[in-house]
Design a protein around this nucleic acid. Structure first.
Length: 586
DNA sequence: GCCGTTTTCGGCCCGACTGTTTTCAGTCG
């Protein structure tokens, strides 16, 4: 179920689109877009705010606040209804076709009565667009191609797929003579969970050789646009890559600009405008004289605007600019802060590698501690028994400290854990006395995803209340692009975690990234602690940690928030979860 | 429709590329 903030955000985004399609004031459309984003990202439920409280959200004034109030009072907003009556929903969908924006969509609707993607495809085949002003043969071709992309994949790809391709492309271009610098930027540098297209930035005095090398890459199948400063291609996987080449002196301004996000950039430029400066990808310029002020590094540009350097993972206009101005940016957790992995598997259950191989691979990553957490018996296909689990524990104790930098004494410490299954009623695989033998317990939902909101919420809260459950694994169970997260009341879950001393996992597998960044931001406000885990089922998966850390950064987490960035003694106190007190009281 | 470190009115981010155009509108990021 969508949060009411998301409902209102979607409504205003639709209203903005409809204003643009009906040829309304472009500035007005932009204001509604901005308000939609601000409301979608606002921490408090807008359904609980009055007009005054609503107007404290930046970008929300009297008129928009009234519309929010109207929405919760009447279930509808009359201004939106009026535009909906004029423009069929299908016309708005036309603007989802690449190269087709609101202006062309309006012409198609007004002149030809087209109000769906299918009707548009038919009209092109029937050559009905031929007489329209502004529509030539290439436009027809581009629209048909765009429809094809939209209907086939056209989708965003997972972070790891995009990162592999980007790193290969950067390596290829960096070798070109005259290429002074090259890196990927865009949503990839911000570690967004999915990537629409890859942005690559290069610095060179003469762009032509770099551009030529780019279009000549073996996996490039189509050149979408080809210019002096910018070239766009599509690869064999259907993913688009944009390359921008700038003069070396513009590197910092260009990197800032192409890293985005769009809304972050707009905010930064507004700050520039207020200081009579103009920021573009070529530098920060004095408006009066036209002279360049700074451009060489991102730090230079931010500093001239009164801001510290802002981590790319924060650049989403979620308050990072204000925090920067106040000098209150978080000191984000990094991959090198991570001292261990708390959720991993071996071939005792569904992992691929034996215990010793996993332990050795973990030690090579430089971890101070490492937890083995195979599945419990409730996932019956895993054939777990008490005996097998206890035999593994003996093995784990023997390997404890055997691998790592400084031999036995300073070696990597091993924790014997388990990934429990949270049953539909919130129970787990074993009774307390058996659970007491583990160093830590991760507990996760693996089935019965459609129980209904109240039952799911109760189920997870009950797992948190189990004194032996330390971490809720992949809390929403979503698989990106394949399975939506379960419909639990996450705010209740977050409160339960904070109250009981249960950590929430940030599962680093690129298919999951669960919790997601927005939920992390909300959970953090409840005072929840987090565990960033690879959930590795093979030695190579241990390296997924970077995606989990990127996601944690997008949730503004510091190493203080992340239990596996803590020293082992502090981690053990957290894992104890007050059990010692319980035992002595009993 | 929102907003204010020259403004309560008059601004509102900036540039590249394409396609249909003989100077520019539309789209995109």
């Amino acid at each position: 179920m969508a949060r009411s903030n998301d409902e209102v955000a979607a409504l205003f985004q639709e209203y903005a689109d409809l204003i643009a399609i009906t040829g309304g004031d472009a500035f007005k459309a932009r204001v509604y877009e901005k308000a939609a984003r601000a409301i979608g990202g606002h921490h408090a439920d807008v359904g609980t705010l009055d007009a005054k409280g609503l107007q404290e959200i930046p970008g929300v004034g009297r008129s928009i606040a009234e519309k929010v109030v109207e929405y919760f009072r009447d279930g509808r907003v009359s201004a939106v209804e009026e535009l909906r009556a004029k423009i069929p929903a299908g016309v708005r969908q036309l603007t989802a076709i690449p190269t087709l924006g609101p202006k062309k969509a309006l012409v198609l609707h007004e002149e030809l009565g087209i109000s769906s993607v299918d009707e548009l495809a038919d009209a092109i085949r029937a050559e009905r667009l031929r007489d329209l002003k502004g529509f030539g043969p290439r436009t027809e071709e581009n629209i048909l191609h765009g429809i094809e992309l939209l209907q086939s994949s056209g989708d965003r790809v997972l972070l790891d797929v995009a990162l592999d391709l980007a790193e290969e492309t950067v390596a290829g271009l960096a070798r070109v003579t005259g290429c002074r610098r090259c890196t990927y930027a865009g949503s990839l540098r911000r570690y967004r969970e999915t990537i629409g297209d890859i942005d690559v930035l290069a610095a060179a005095e003469r762009p032509a050789p770099v551009m030529r090398a780019f279009t000549g890459l073996p996996y490039v199948t189509e050149v979408i646009a080809h210019g002096d400063k910018k070239t766009s291609v599509r690869t064999s996987k259907g993913l688009a890559i944009d390359l921008r080449v700038v003069p070396p002196d513009s590197w910092g301004a260009a990197l800032l600009y192409f890293t985005g996000s769009k809304t972050h950039n707009i905010r930064v430029r507004e700050i520039a405008v207020r200081q009579r400066l103009k920021l573009s990808e070529y530098g920060l310029f004095d408006v009066e004289s036209g002279e360049k002020v700074v451009s060489a590094t991102e730090e230079d540009v931010y500093a001239r605007l009164g801001l510290p350097w802002i981590e790319p993972t924060l650049r989403e206009d979620r308050g990072e600019i204000e925090a920067g101005q106040r000098g209150e940016l978080p000191d984000l957790v990094t991959e090198s802060d991570i001292r261990g992995d708390l959720h991993t598997h071996t071939d005792l259950t569904d992992g691929l590698a034996p215990l010793e191989e996993m332990v050795r691979a973990a030690a090579e990553r430089g971890y101070a501690y490492y937890a083995i957490t195979d599945h419990g018996p409730d996932l019956y296909m895993q054939r777990m028994t008490d005996e097998r689990m206890l035999a593994q524990r003996d093995q784990v104790r023997q390997l404890d400290g055997a691998y790592g930098k400084q031999g036995k004494r300073g070696g990597m410490r091993l924790l014997h854990g388990v990934e429990l299954n949270i049953a539909p009623d919130g129970g787990v695989d074993w009774p307390d006395d058996f659970l007491a033998g583990f160093d830590l317990c991760v507990a996760s939902v693996h089935s019965h995803f459609n129980q209904g909101r109240e039952a799911l919420t109760r189920r997870i809260v009950r797992a948190c209340e189990n004194p032996y459950v330390n971490v809720i694994g992949h809390p929403t169970t979503r698989i990106i692009g394949k399975r939506p997260g379960i419909d639990a009341d996450l705010d209740q879950v977050f409160a339960a975690c904070a109250r009981t001393g249960t950590a929430l996992e940030i599962n680093a597998h690129p298919d999951r990234l669960d919790l997601r960044d927005e939920d992390i931001l909300r959970a953090r406000r409840h005072g929840v602690r987090f565990a960033i885990d690879s959930d590795a089922h093979a030695t190579l998966h241990l390296a997924h940690m970077r995606y989990g850390v990127g996601t944690a950064q997008r949730g503004w987490l510091t190493k203080e928030d992340v239990i596996n960035a803590w020293p082992l003694t502090r981690l053990r106190r957290f894992l104890d979860k007050g059990r010692r007190g319980r035992r002595s009281a009993a």
